[in-house]
Design a protein around this nucleic acid. Structure first.
Lengths: 211, 211
DNA sequence: AATAACAGACCGACTAGTCGGTTTTTATAA
DNA sequence: TTATAAAAACCGACTAGTCGGTCTGTTATT
């Protein structure tokens, strides 16, 4: 096994420190001492501290966006798609908790040229969710009285907020949390008639309800 | 009408700037020039920049906590209590949008002695919500399969996230948003039998559904 | 030999906070 | 009312420390 490259070590250390102390609470000096390198090592791998921040943002948003698009492509009904997106989205917390924390806490401090790129992907991600909700309403699976954007943002908010309280190794696994979220969301979106449909009920029992 | 006191002016200016550029993106010098005062004026009113940050946090969390406790005291059934709390909580966005942004973006940077105080009130607020959910389950109004904490956090998350996208003067009023949130939440919490009960249905139609 | 990877002393810009001084307000007594 | 003393409010040049980034080297790789 080859030794872990310096760039990776810097990112990991920075992530750990940023998550705990915030971007401005951590100096470049601190990062380089904690991973046994030097200013030279750091600036050989990154143009600036800002670029490191951007890198962290990009890794995360690229991943979630891809996952959402994959989930959309894999399933064909709105309900299934929504569930798949939520589940994969929530599961990201086990993989990228520090990235997510940095992403939602520090994006204010991205330099314009960086934040522009990030926001594009962020917007795309939102659009996938909106699209699914829209199609769900058209298909009669989701309640037509719901406004697409607000509903979408409330789902996103509910899931995103998890980064504020979720502890990996806590008493609940991320899969259990994902199921509860899905359960809550489906209860608030599905129409009465959709709840009657057999395909949906079956799917519901299989993927959501653990009672 | 008496002239607005300097302390108030400083807070308002700081709030406006912090919301836009973040706590670390704004210098004390910037604050004092933008509200036509001086370093002296600033440090006469605040012990430090940190204390100003604390002050902003405290004003907001104290307000929401009080509102939640009032709502709890005013109503007697879990459903009514939950709705009242949500509604008052959401409405805070019109009053305290900048406070909220600072609260959720910058709390990492509170000095330990300050963050301790803030976290106590924050915890109390959460407990009010958990309590209502617990009582709702006991009373048979909310689904018993729901875990109190996660459900509570998902409500809190959904509402809090609003600060990321809500624009006062946007196409939707905060009251409309509050109603949609309440609608979504009640749909996901209420038991089938509670949905049948006349009191609840009546209440539902009056406070929530605008369809 | 040439280039990439890394080391670390150093620099300059920036910024929270200070401190001696000035102005305004308030309290009190004539 | 008015004179005056004391305190509170405010001013702004200055400081001391911090931190991102540079630059000149040295070491490892190809």
């Amino acid at each position: 096994m080859v030794e872990k490259q310096l760039k990776e070590r810097i990112i990991e250390t920075a992530l750990k420190l940023f998550e705990k102390y915030g971007y401005h609470g951590v100096t470049v000096d601190r990062i380089v001492t904690e991973c046994n390198t030097s200013k030279g090592g750091f600036y050989h791998n990154f143009k600036s501290k800002d670029e490191l921040l951007y890198h962290i943002h990009d890794v995360f948003i690229t991943y979630v966006l891809n996952k959402a698009q994959e989930a959309y492509a894999k399933y064909k009904t709105p309900t299934e798609r929504l569930c798949a997106i939520i589940q994969s989205f929530v599961k990201v917390f086990d993989l990228y908790k520090p990235h997510i924390t940095v992403f939602y806490q520090e994006s204010t401090y991205l330099k314009p040229e960086y934040s522009k790129k990030i926001n594009e992907k962020r917007e795309q991600f939102k659009q996938v969710i909106f699209q699914v909700i829209r199609e769900g309403i058209e298909a009669g699976e989701f309640r037509s009285e719901l406004p697409v954007e607000i509903t979408g943002m409330s789902i996103i908010g509910m899931v995103n907020w998890t980064y504020k309280w979720y502890k990996p190794n806590g008493s609940m696994t991320i899969e259990e949390i994902a199921k509860i979220f899905t359960d809550l969301i489906l209860h608030s979106l599905l129409t009465e008639s959709a709840k009657q449909k057999e395909e949906i009920t079956t799917f519901f029992l299989k993927n959501v309800s653990r009672f």
